[in-house]
């Protein structure tokens, strides 16, 4: 291992040789025994390691308690979790209960038939009285019409 390779590895993995890949550890130790330049770089790297590993000042007990309480107080109450998934509660539909339900529910097929009949009549009347289509060149085509009616 050359001193340049050693410095590059120091920059990547730091001065704790136990954190280096196995393949490079022995070479590094051999180099440290023979190269003063490598030893200097290693000493410098150890100082930088110490700065980087220095513990952050801890929270005071009171501050930790306040922060923990703030977190617990702000937890949302949604219940769904991995193991206890609960179906959302069904929202009551108007007319689903009481007097409304007694009338609406038995007559539902009748309402559907009336709606379908109305749609068919509407289509027939529209086709019977449809105006002649305007020439595309004069009116500017469907794109302009769509734009006018807010389709775009």
């Amino acid at each position: 291992m050359t001193p340049e390779e050693f410095t590059a590895l120091l920059d990547t993995y730091g001065a704790d040789l136990t954190r280096w890949p196995h393949a490079h550890r022995q070479g590094a130790q051999r180099l440290l025994q023979v190269s003063e330049r490598a030893r200097d770089a290693f000493a410098e790297a150890q100082m930088l390691d110490a700065v980087l590993k220095s513990p952050e000042p801890g929270l005071s007990s009171a501050r930790r308690q306040r922060l923990t309480d703030a977190i617990l107080d702000n937890l949302p109450d949604e219940p769904a979790t991995r193991r206890t998934v609960r179906e959302p509660e069904a929202r009551p539909v108007r007319g689903e209960s009481g007097f409304g339900a007694a009338i609406v529910r038995p007559l539902t097929p009748l309402w559907v038939v009336c709606l379908g009949f109305g749609m068919i009549v509407g289509v027939i009347l529209t086709l019977g009285h449809a105006p002649a289509p305007a020439p595309q060149s004069a009116e500017g085509g469907w794109v302009e019409n769509m734009a006018f009616y807010g389709g775009l």
Binding site: P55, E56, G58, L59, R64, L67, T68, I71, L72
Partner: peptide
């Protein structure tokens, strides 16, 4: 869990 990890997460 919060008490156990909050110092490190703040750090």
């Amino acid at each position: 869990l919060v008490g156990r990890h909050i110092d490190r997460i703040v750090g």
